[in-house]
Amino acid sequence: MARPDDDSFLAALRDAVRLRDCIALALVPAIAVAVFALPVARRRSLAFAYGDPSLLTAYTAQFVHFDAAHLAANVLGYALVAGFGYVLAALSGYRRVFGVTAATYLVAFSPALSWLNLALPRNAVSYGLSGLNMAFVGLLALVLVAYGSRLDDRISVRYAPGLFFAVVALIALIVPRAGTITGIGAASVVVAAGYVLSARGSWPEKPRAGWGPRLMQAGWLDAGVLGVVTLFGYQFVGFDSLVGDSGIVNVYVHLLGFCLGFIVPYTALALGVLGPDRAFLSD
């Protein structure tokens, strides 16, 4: 596996990305499209009804859509957040972390997010990929920092919560609700700033020889910038249109998906359950 300073961006990208991984990631939108082709009555039976929940519909609801625009938006969102997340994870030596986490999302998060909807009892139906997409956004926040650590070794994954709290602060601005949300946003700004100051204070004056210069070369910096734009920009898609009487449960599930999507892999890394790919351990 090429280190950032050993090869061009495109060569490293070809070396890092695996066709089988791309095919596996493509199964999610493929299933969503296949389910959309089913009759409406059948799709309704696969959605998660709060008044009549089941283990089957808790899982299948993630792939159900009743409107082509809703399906297209969710599939495009998935392609962006999961796609960028995978590429950055592969380039930074966190492909295994991404793969294990993505599998966890698909197996456990899909039904879990549906059942957690029941924490806010109401007569409604839940469906769509958006909650799962937000979990991948949480993972994107983690791998962005991991990607930065491969370009400049003064950046450490242990400071990833700083980026996480910065996103939570943005969400609080996008969804102006009760004072609780405002308080969470303010607290998130303080915590994010604390992580930045802590990280900055512990940095050596210069990165390890050969690492820092690659950060400013074509491709490497561009990929990181696009990842940051996707991370912060997707919050406007995931939350801005949901403010209103019918949006509170969606906001709740989207925020829950984002938080769990970050916390689960970060905790696994912190506890040593997961770690960088072996090809990078000797860098």
Rank of each mutant, 00 (worst) to 15 (best):
Y86K: 04
F98K: 04
L76K: 04
A108C: 15
T101H: 06
A41T: 15
P111K: 00
Y86F: 09
Y94P: 05
F109Q: 01
D67M: 02
A89F: 04
Y94G: 11
F48H: 01
W115H: 13
A108T: 10
G83C: 12
Y94A: 12
L55R: 05
G85A: 12
Y50V: 12
Q62W: 06
Y50L: 15
L71K: 00
T60Q: 06
A79P: 06
S54I: 06
L118F: 03
G51N: 10
Y105I: 11
V107K: 04
P111Y: 05
W115A: 12
H70M: 12
A108R: 01
S45M: 09
A47Y: 03
Y78F: 15
S92R: 05
A112R: 02
G83D: 06
S45R: 05
V40C: 00
F63W: 11
P53S: 01
A90F: 08
A72Q: 00
L71Q: 00
A103R: 12
S114T: 03
A47S: 14
P39N: 08
H70V: 13
A79K: 01
G77N: 08
A61E: 13
A89C: 04
A89D: 02
L71F: 00
T104G: 14
V81L: 13
V107W: 02
P111G: 07
G51I: 08
R43P: 03
T104Y: 11
Y105M: 09
G77S: 12
W115K: 09
Y50P: 00
A58N: 10
F84C: 12
V75K: 00
A69E: 07
V40T: 13
T60D: 08
D67A: 13
V97N: 02
A103G: 15
A37W: 10
R44T: 11
A89Q: 07
P111I: 05
N117I: 03
G83Q: 07
T104F: 15
A72C: 05
W115Y: 15
A102R: 02
T60A: 09
A89W: 00
V100Q: 09
G99I: 08
F66G: 05
R42M: 14
A90K: 10
P39W: 07
Y78W: 14
A102D: 09
A89I: 02
A47P: 02
Y59E: 08
A102E: 04
G51L: 11
Y94V: 01
N117R: 10
A73C: 09
D67E: 15
L113H: 11
P111C: 05
A108Q: 02
L113R: 06
G83V: 08
H70W: 03
L113E: 02
V87D: 07
R42F: 13
F63I: 10
F98L: 06
Y59K: 04
V87A: 13
A103L: 14
V64G: 03
R43N: 11
N74V: 00
V64A: 08
Q62L: 01
A79V: 14
F63E: 03
G83A: 11
A37Y: 05
R43L: 06
F66Q: 01
V81G: 06
L88T: 11
L80K: 01
D67L: 02
H65A: 13
V81C: 10
T57C: 13
G99S: 12
L71D: 00
N74A: 14
Y86S: 05
G83R: 08
T104N: 03
P111D: 02
G77W: 06
L38P: 07
Y94D: 12
